[in-house]
Deep mutational scan, measured.
Amino acid sequence: AVCQRCQARFSPAERIVNSNGELYHEHCFVCAQCFRPFPEGLFYEFEGRKYCEHDFQML
């Protein structure tokens, strides 16, 4: 399997985020606008991209 964002493979010891069947490295699972991790894992999706609450409100 490969990361949805960076397309790199996962190492066996690595923590992986699964979002609706899409797999991400922990450091790749970030807001599409500000590139920060999601507070408490909370995000909003718009047109296939994931956003933090602040950036989602700015759309």
Rank of each mutant, 00 (worst) to 15 (best):
L23W: 08
P12T: 12
D55K: 00
R49Q: 12
L42T: 14
L23P: 13
A8L: 14
I16R: 09
C28F: 00
S11M: 12
P39H: 04
I16K: 14
G21E: 13
F10A: 04
N18C: 10
H25D: 00
F35D: 15
S11W: 08
G41V: 02
H54W: 08
D55Y: 01
E53S: 08
S11H: 04
F43T: 12
V30L: 11
S11G: 12
F46Y: 14
P39I: 04
F46S: 06
R36C: 11
R9Y: 05
H25P: 01
E47T: 03
V17F: 11
C28H: 10
Y44Q: 11
G21W: 01
F38N: 09
H27V: 12
C6Y: 01
P12S: 12
C31S: 00
E47H: 13
P12I: 13
E40H: 13
E47V: 08
M58F: 15
G41H: 04
L42D: 11
F29Q: 07
C6F: 02
F29R: 08
K50Q: 11
N18E: 09
P37K: 06
F38I: 02
N20A: 12
V17A: 08
E26N: 04
E22G: 09
E14H: 03
F43Q: 14
A8M: 15
C52Q: 02
A13P: 10
Q33P: 02
G48F: 04
H25E: 01
A32M: 09
E53F: 10
R49M: 09
L23M: 14
F29K: 03
C3M: 01
A1R: 02
H54I: 15
C3F: 00
H25N: 04
N20W: 03
C28I: 01
Q33L: 07
L42F: 05
I16N: 07
I16V: 07
Y51C: 05
G21L: 07
N20G: 14
A8G: 15
F29L: 12
S19D: 13
E47R: 08
H25G: 01
G48M: 04
A32I: 09
R36F: 05
Y44W: 08
C52W: 00
E22C: 13
E53R: 11
R9D: 11
R15L: 06
C31I: 01
G41A: 06
F56T: 09
I16E: 04
R36K: 14
Q57S: 08
Y51E: 02
Y24Q: 05
V2P: 05
H27M: 04
C31R: 01
S11R: 07
E47D: 10
E53G: 06
A8H: 11
F43A: 08
S11T: 10
P39S: 09
S11I: 06
N20P: 03
Y44N: 14
M58Q: 12
R49P: 00
M58S: 13
C52T: 00
F35Y: 12
G48A: 07
Y51L: 15
E47S: 04
V30D: 01
R15D: 12
L59K: 14
F35R: 15
K50E: 05
R9S: 15
R49I: 09
